[in-house]
């Protein structure tokens, strides 16, 4: 079990997770591994017919990256809620950085929960995912 010795408080920043640029291979692997076989993410001919310039990343790939950021900060067994809105499409070659911070500590069902604002951002600064996580802390 990961030992968290530092107290989590309002303003605590979740260590950022920087990802390598998204490639077609990334998307092919994620399509297979996640079971999301929507051709718009892996078949350029289909994507063009649908009016897109090229294939683009699964939103759930970036959500999985946010999940990685959360579980390397606190054990997954502490995660109570994880949500995000998909604010912009992630394109090929975009390098995503996940970050977040604690904005509130609240008591719920006998636990102290850290409410964290989380986001995924392109190198250009454009936010692709924005959301929230509730994590049990300081037990």
């Amino acid at each position: 079990m990961s030992e968290i010795n530092t107290e989590v408080k309002v303003g605590t920043e979740i260590p950022a997770l920087e990802l390598p640029p998204i490639t077609r291979t990334t998307l092919a692997l994620f399509a297979g591994a996640s079971g999301d076989h929507n051709p718009i993410h892996i078949d350029i001919d289909f994507a063009k017919q649908a009016g897109m310039d090229d294939v683009f990343a699964h939103g759930m790939l970036s959500m999985a990256y946010l999940g990685r950021m959360l579980t390397r900060w606190q054990p997954q067994s502490k995660l109570r809620k994880f949500s995000n809105r998909f604010a912009a499409i992630t394109n090929l070659q975009d390098a995503i950085t996940c970050s977040g911070k604690v904005v509130e500590l609240l008591e719920q069902e006998g636990e102290t929960l850290a409410r964290c604002e989380i986001q995924a951002v392109k190198a250009t600064g454009e936010i692709t995912l924005v959301g929230e996580a509730l994590v049990a802390v300081n037990a």
Binding site: A50, M60, R80, K81, F86
Partner: peptide, 26 residues
């Protein structure tokens, strides 16, 4: 994606708007 056929939707026109998970166990 069984909702596609149910609602007669074209897969090329769907986007994921938001997603929430609530955890009660592992």
């Amino acid at each position: 994606l069984p909702f596609l056929q149910l609602l007669d939707m074209d897969i090329g026109r769907i986007l994921h708007g938001d997603q929430t998970f609530e955890y009660f166990g592992q």
